[in-house]
Amino acid sequence: MVEQDNKKEFQERRRQLLRLGAAGVPMVLTLKASAAQPVHSALDCSFVIPTTSNILVDSDGRAWIGSRGVREKSGELKVSDIDKFRQQADFVFPNGSAPSKFRPDTCDTQKGWTTCYRFYEIDSNTNITPADYLNSSGNWSLTGAKGLYLALASQYIDTYGNDGGFPGISCLTSILTYLEYQ
């Protein structure tokens, strides 16, 4: 008898929940991390660039990211390789995207070779930890190919937000979001 009463009560509680469900109340809750957790994960997060991601930069700060190689000979890049790289790029960034220190200092083209571009190479499976590029006052200090990648990634966030399949975006977004609260 007691068992039957319990069963009836149990059934009534489920009915009540179903009525709430019909009113649109969620049946599953997801626990959010404490305020300190995103801080930790944001500052410690790192990401792996899955495929070779080379970056070509011109003197206006335009940038192309792709997996092709570009041949280099004493600081000059092969023009035909550059053309192919630009045509088959995975991502293209407009003028001014690459900070000036990553752009070429000179621009001269002769006999199929040019100094009007600079080329940065990032191998597949390269690990990037954005927090390594923050200095102690919380400002970005971007150097090297990985630093350039982060500079472009943050441009990408400004334009497209946190999606679109650009590797590492969510890690970087969490840091940028966090820094905004400082």
Binding site: F10, R13, R14, L17, L18, G21, M27, V28, L29, T30, L31
Partner: peptide, 23 residues
């Protein structure tokens, strides 16, 4: 009536009621 569900795949903890658990 409340069930805590740890999702190994996402590392997230969810709270289920009698209806979601029944499903």
């Amino acid at each position: 009536d409340t069930t805590f569900v740890y999702n190994r795949q996402s590392g997230t903890t969810h709270i289920f009621n009698l209806v979601s658990m029944a499903m």
